[in-house]
């Protein structure tokens, strides 16, 4: 059953993953068996880009931030998440992840994977809340 919390922000009758084809670009992650709407890296940390290339492949379309997720959310995720949960992944600072986690929560999503890489960087993915009732 869909968690009631998943529909809190937008009052939808139910939430569902958008089909991969709905995204303009979506990148699959075989290890997580999901396609991500965005793969986010922080260009202030070269290892963020390097690790993302290693994990998602050299031609994966990466969304570049410099720590600040405002534009990414305000101009993009805000609209996409209004239509429904769209998983994202990234290798960023924990502060960037925190912001996206809080914003994703309002869209019925949660951090489903988190791994500290260095003292600065964490590898993560955000998807539909798995503990749905």
């Amino acid at each position: 059953m869909t968690s009631r919390r998943q529909v809190l922000q937008f009052g939808l009758a139910g939430a569902a993953l958008l089909p991969v084809a709905t995204y303009a670009r979506a990148w699959p992650d075989a290890s997580e068996d999901v396609a991500f709407y965005k793969l986010i890296v922080d260009e202030r940390f070269p290892e963020s880009l390097a690790l993302a290339r290693r994990r998602y492949g050299p031609s994966a379309p990466l969304t570049i931030i410099r720590g600040d997720v405002t534009s990414l959310w305000y101009e993009d995720l805000y609209f996409v998440w209004q239509r429904g949960p769209a998983p994202i992944a990234g290798i960023t600072t924990s502060q960037s992840l925190f912001c996206l986690e809080m914003l994703a929560r309002d869209a019925g999503m949660e951090v489903v994977r988190r791994q500290d890489i260095t003292t600065d960087l964490v590898s993560w993915s955000i998807g539909v809340r798995r503990r749905a009732r």
Binding site: R66, G67, D68, T70, T93, S94, S96, F98, C99, T119
Partner: peptide
């Protein structure tokens, strides 16, 4: 896009979280 901190210009932002600091 060139303004590092737009908040004093009445533009909401999450840029405060991008400021580095102690973990």
């Amino acid at each position: 896009e060139k303004i590092p901190n737009p908040v004093p210009l009445g533009i909401p932002s999450l840029t405060t979280f991008a400021i580095g600091g102690p973990f």
